[in-house]
């Protein structure tokens, strides 16, 4: 390989995409060459389609297919004051960095409280996000991580619950807003797993909303969510130019979250007790 090897580049350890680098450039980084990358992309696509609950495979698919979308997101972030603060501070979202107790004590109508309620209602935690492994540039890897960790904020700000149609609607929204190919892949192949009634509702109501809102909204990658806990959620939506989606299956405004949750729990208990003799 001496023919293309450049003494100078080896000296400088310049991280250049054209050269095969074998040294991890951040913790947990797994450097891949182009062939490994392509192989993993195809493999993870097949596995994700076969079982969408394989979070690791969906994550790998997102990283191996990111291509030029991440550098474009970085350009957007560098051009925005808030995005630059995110890149400088590199905040992480998990139950250790986010003080849930403090959020629950925030006044009603704030973004922090809405997020807390949303987590409670959907029974999810921010700790289940896969770490980024296959992106070589450390800053781009962080942007990927940020996109992934903020997924629940997008749910919350768009008032969408965790179910297949809502997830798919959100994927269309994300594709229009972030431009990441993985969102498009999920958005195209995901509906195959829905029954025809749900699929037709998805395309009739959610997809037009998602593409329109996602495209018109401010780039959500720039938002420093952690500094907006105390902002009124309606104000925040207005600032980010996010319109409410067509009513999702829970169909109630956010202020009634707790009651809704209780009602759903009761319903669920009733349905499970009727199923089990």
């Amino acid at each position: 390989m001496s023919f293309l090897r450049n003494r100078n580049l080896q000296c400088l350890h310049l991280a250049s995409k054209r050269y095969l680098t074998t040294q991890p450039s951040y913790d947990g980084h797994i450097p891949l060459n182009w062939f490994e990358n392509a192989f993993l992309a195809v493999g993870s696509a097949v596995m994700s389609l076969a079982d969408p609950r394989r979070g690791d495979m969906v994550a790998a698919l997102g990283e191996t297919t990111a291509g030029p979308a991440l550098p474009k997101l970085r350009e957007k972030m560098l051009a925005s004051a808030e995005g630059r603060q995110v890149l400088k501070a590199r905040p992480r979202v998990n139950s250790k960095t986010v003080d849930m107790v403090a959020l629950s004590k925030l006044p009603a109508g704030t973004f922090g409280q809405s997020y807390f309620n949303w987590l409670e209602r959907c029974g999810v935690t921010p700790d289940t996000r896969e770490p980024v492994r296959y992106i070589d540039d450390p800053e781009l890897a962080y942007i990927m991580q940020r996109y992934r960790e903020c997924h629940d904020f997008y749910h919350c700000i768009c008032s969408l619950p965790v179910n297949v149609e809502s997830e798919l609607a959100l994927k269309y929204f994300e594709f229009a807003n972030f431009g990441l190919p993985v969102a498009a892949i999920s958005a195209i192949f995901g509906p195959l797993r829905l029954d025809s009634a749900k699929r037709s509702r998805l395309f009739r109501e959610y997809v037009p909303w998602a593409l329109k809102t996602g495209g018109n909204a401010e780039p959500l990658i720039n938002v420093f969510w952690e500094r907006r806990w105390e902002q009124n959620v309606e104000e925040l939506k207005k600032e980010l130019r996010i319109e409410d989606p067509p009513p999702a299956r829970w169909g109630k405004p956010l202020s009634e979250a707790a009651r809704e949750k209780r009602r759903r729990e009761l319903l669920q208990q009733a349905s499970t007790s009727s199923e089990t003799p």
Partner: peptide, 15 residues
């Protein structure tokens, strides 16, 4: 300095 850190340029590097 921030941009150097973002590109993993170490302080002792020629870069």
């Amino acid at each position: 300095r921030w941009r150097e850190a973002a590109h993993s340029i170490q302080p002792y590097s020629a870069l």
